[in-house]
Amino acid sequence: MGLDRRRRMSIIITRAGWILSTLLVWQLIVSTRRVSPLILPSLQAIGSSFWSSLITGDLVRYAGVSISLVLAGGLIGTLLAAVLAVAAYQSKFLAGGIDTLTAVAHPLPGIALLPLVILWSGTGITSVLVIIVHSVIWPMTINLRSGFSSVHQRYIDVGRNYGFSRLGIMLHIMIPASWSYMLAGLRIAWARSWRAVISAEMIFGVMGASGGLGWYIFQRRVFMDTAGMYAGIAVLIMIGLVIEDHLFRLLEHKTISRWGGRQ
């Protein structure tokens, strides 16, 4: 525990050190006045743009839209991946099909599918969700399947001994036993879906209330509000750091570190 806390503190200190020094260099360059503020706005300008968007609630709302899209798509994608992985585990015949599907679809960037998705499901939230689900489902399926195949027969025997059905064994034994693989899959899925949602929002933004962070940044860009653009990117960075450095580490600490490595 103590060790883990110290490790997390040291991560925070290292990160803060680098970020602060970078900001310092940034401000030094700005103060030479050799670079146009349309390329490198001063930190004050970025800060005040950030602050004003924060107090009007804009930034929170835009970030909230993107995050909830990723959460919703992540949930749907994970459930679908679970269905695929379970189906592949239960049936050799289906496993072949799912293998092929994964091999074909996994390397496709979600953004490459955008023109097709627009044709099939229009330009609303559904299309963004389709792209997020696509980013989540394949890495999750792959990880769940390797997780299932790594579960030791003994744990399955223990579950059978308690009279669990196939479904019961799936829920009570297979899924928790392959949790470390699931967590690794979730990490990849998060990274892919977060990128996908931001890019999708930049490619087809919706001007109404439903725009996300990508849209926020794009809008700042087309109206040449460089400081606002950097403020939006700063929020992207902060969300990424919080989720990677803290949420996933915390999740790992609460589970895998306690249970002891991969099972």
Partner: peptide, 20 residues
Amino acid sequence: TAPSMERIMIFQEFDQLLPW
């Protein structure tokens, strides 16, 4: 016919407790 809690198996290997 099937496994049952009437007959419980204990294995040689230490990792038969569910680690989670």
